[in-house]
Nucleic acid binder design. Structure first.
Lengths: 197, 197
DNA sequence: TACTCTAGAGAACGGCCGTTCTCTACGGAA
DNA sequence: TTCCGTAGAGAACGGCCGTTCTCTAGAGTA
């Protein structure tokens, strides 16, 4: 086993444990025994727990956003469907075993500004999500994408949090319905604007 | 200083510290020194840290929901305004110094099912919030309150989380705009339903 | 075979945390 | 004044955690 594979195993273990139990509840020794990587090598690959947390959040950010974008790209035909597909994907995610909300919201809630690195990673993740939603919203309702995306972001975050606290039931479909209504409203005010000018 | 006052002081210190730094980052000694209550008395009033956490969450739940309901009651004239006033109050809350999101979402994100007591308190709090929103929504759009409240809850939660991560700017007003659009949509489909029947 | 280098296992270390215990001082009753 | 009960201060205890260090075994090379 070379360092590359060891890093992956450690990161896999860290992801599973951090996501399930939180950052502070998981000890390095838990990650060591779960990954099967010796402490010596673990500390060669990641110089500290903090570095491991950062790597965990970075990889989660990349994977999560890629999975969402892939699903939306392959499931949606037009811009409006794309936005609704976001919530279909959320529903699939919520139904996964072990779902426990957004890793970033959880980490940020746990540490907040106590850990500037975690806070910064959370902000980056949410900004990227907002940028993605803005892109989708701009395609669906040209000229009103930014305002719509801000509202959609609230519904997405709310769905995730509600699903995490209450279990999957209904949060995704309620979010989808809310998104559809917000889309309708944005389209309506856009056509009204066009007719006025 | 009697036990009653000591309990209040301890709870005040716990609230400030837990909310700012999270549950696990705060030690009993921090609470002792901040409250100025001796360790002996502290443990007489609260038998363990867990009990103190539970008391903190309970009091926060009561105060938070009372503050929201009071504001809405005094600020809104009709049912529609009441729902929009919820987001005005959120905006005031977000702007308070030291605002760091929802104490329950943070605690739940930190510990999740690792602490069943925290998870249960979070569920209770959010169910009470949903019940309150359902009551407001039912007054605004009779017969469609439940569905509307489910959507409003998502927007409320999303606003809180977004404000916590990104700072106050815009989350409350975006939430207000989204709520208004969702209200319009619910009213529209209600009148359509009435005309159909 | 003899030597060297590396890796793994886990002991060790310093520090913190929740909780309990000890010691001292003091206020009120006899 | 003497005794008693209580309170506070903080030491003590057991345990965990992140990180480093030690020791041993084995693989590769001459």
């Amino acid at each position: 086993m070379d360092d590359e594979e060891a890093s992956q195993r450690v990161l896999d273990a860290a992801e599973a444990l951090f996501y399930e139990r939180g950052l502070q509840s998981v000890g390095i020794d838990d990650i060591r025994s779960t990954s099967g990587v010796s402490l010596k090598r673990l500390y060669r690959c990641f110089h500290s727990k903090q570095e491991l947390v950062t790597a965990y959040l970075d990889r989660t950010d990349r994977r999560w956003r890629a999975a969402l974008a892939n699903y939306v790209r392959s499931a949606a035909e037009d811009p409006r469907d794309a936005i609704l597909a976001v919530f279909d994907w959320l529903g699939l995610w919520f139904a996964e075993p072990g779902f426990r909300g957004c890793a970033f919201i959880n980490a940020h809630g746990e540490l907040g500004e106590v850990s500037p690195a975690v806070a910064a990673a959370t902000r980056r993740h949410k900004e990227a999500l907002l940028a993605y939603l803005t892109q989708l919203a701009e395609q669906a309702v040209p000229g009103a994408g930014r305002a719509l995306a801000n509202q959609l972001l609230l519904v997405v975050e709310g769905s995730i949090v509600t699903a995490a606290v209450h279990g999957a039931s209904g949060a995704a479909s309620a979010g989808r319905a809310a998104a559809a209504a917000l889309l309708d409203a944005a389209e309506l005010s856009r056509t009204a604007r066009l007719h006025r000018d």
